[in-house]
Design a protein around this nucleic acid. Structure first.
Lengths: 140, 140
DNA sequence: TCTAATCCCATTGACGCCCATAGTGCCCCA
DNA sequence: TGGGGCACTATGGGCGTCAATGGGATTAGA
């Protein structure tokens, strides 16, 4: 699902994904820069709390917990949905993803990803190739 | 079983295959672009959730798990059945399969495949040839 | 004051929902 | 046993609704 960014820098979040958060009564999304991919992991505000909960259960003095906490708040940001279900694409989003004029949305029921269309397509092909190769090896 | 795509881009899902999902109370199909074939693997939404469940139980840091998850969502999509048991053939389906005016359905009890008719015929022949060859070798 | 964000409204094209018709196989009954 | 009618599938098309997009107007913020 690919949508265009308009002259004001807005893009419609596909209805199917809006439902994820709007049904929960929220008007905000939370976007997190993916660690390994030039993409954004996006979900409702509970995406943040879910990670935070996870952190609480760990040793607060462990380095990984520190890193994770830092990562969550430094590499994440809120996106406000306007009345028409659009968000404005900030530099925060563009830098990490390479997004300029169009955005590709892909994902599941609880959260989704935002990509620069070409990057998305490239990654899709890479993943297909890797899985096909793995399966070929396992067949022998 | 081959059906025609109408002017609005719709095609009837053969009744026998509809039963697979409708009997489960669903009105949606889940289509996944096959890794090795120019075809779509189609089944009920539980096809996706089944895979997802499987992934949750595996090591979430393994690259393969990431790949699988991405593949399932990037190369998979939902197809809504209308009241008459038809789906609209999107570009998402056409690109991978070469489908343009007609669709060939083939499959088993739990899920089925969608093909461009000529591609299906070609694949059928190669499979026949491969099996015949294998049998010929084993006979010696 | 100038820029940027937010709200509101208009357009258009796609999709969902509805009904109509033709073709086909099946069953039942005369 | 042959014919009529019922049931269902595949297909075509009308129409209303909603999503995606564009743009004006108003407000907030620097």
């Amino acid at each position: 699902m690919t949508n265009r960014i308009d002259a004001k820098g807005r893009v419609s979040v596909p209805a199917q994904f809006r439902l994820i958060v709007q049904s929960a009564g929220h008007t905000e999304l939370y976007a997190l820069r993916s660690l390994h991919l030039p993409a954004l992991d996006v979900g409702g505000p509970e995406l943040l709390t879910r990670f935070d909960k996870k952190l609480e259960s760990e040793d607060p003095f462990a380095e990984t917990a520190d890193d994770m906490s830092f990562y969550l708040h430094a590499d994440g940001g809120f996106l406000k949905l306007d009345a028409d279900g659009r968000i404005t694409v900030t530099d925060f989003l563009r830098e990490h993803t390479g997004i300029s004029t169009d955005v590709t949305f892909a994902g599941a029921n609880t959260h989704f990803q935002m990509w620069q269309p070409d990057q998305f397509e490239a990654h899709r092909k890479t993943v297909r190739a890797r899985l096909a190769e793995k399966r070929r090896l396992e067949a022998n």
